[in-house]
Amino acid sequence: MKATFGQKVKTGIFTFAGLVLLIGGIFLIGKNKNMFGDTFHIYGTFRNVGGLQVGNNVRFVGINVGTVESIHIISDTLARVDMVIKEKAHPFIKSDAIANIGSDGLMGDKLIIISATSDNAVIIKDKGLIETVDPVDFGQVMDKVSRIADNAEVITEQLAGIATQINAGKGSIGTLLYSDKVAKNLEGSVDNLKQGTAGFSQNMDALKHNFLLKGYYKKKARAKEQQETIEQFKEDTTGQNLNKKEKRKAERKLKKELKQ
């Protein structure tokens, strides 16, 4: 049976769409691997690449600017890592920049971090060598950790000694915690303080009744009362739907009364 025109068109569209998807995928992968667009190459040598793999990211100021292109062993102690970097990042990477190997999160991939050291150096050359810092070796980390643990042991031993002395009531802290004498002295001081404050409040009462200061205290009490009345009134009027004029009138009236 002959393929009809509609079938041909549908097949054509389907094939075309599939190919577009395929090419789109290839392009996206290539874009992530810096296969398209302008790039330049640099390389660095490391004693230990710490599990870095071809295709890992290269970061500069925290931005992915390239990928690891290849890793070769060049001698019994050195590995050469070639990187492809986007041309856009080229002007910012200087010849004295330093590359080191880090990792992305706790269970993340390894990556190369390029960090700048100065502003005035010249821009790094294409296919140029970049200085490197070897990544922290896990063995070294363990070494440090064990030294820290040793120190901690010494410190805890000493602390334990101090604690036993305190328990035995030796030294000033020991006396403070374990002798009754100090506590009794403190009780006596508190009693004295109580008596002192009672006397002070009597003095203040006497002052209020003194005629010179009587007016001041009276005024203060009236102002407080006035304020309360206004607030009371406001509460009343907001509940009802009085018009503004009446409200203002009533307010003025009330204020007059209070002034007298």
């Binding site: 393929a3 079938q7 041909k8 389907f14 094939t15």
Partner: peptide, 16 residues
């Protein structure tokens, strides 16, 4: 060719 296109239609497009 014609039959190939028809089969592509039957196999590809119809299975989509």
């Amino acid at each position: 060719w014609n039959e190939l296109v028809r089969q592509c239609y039957m196999i590809g497009y119809r299975s989509f």
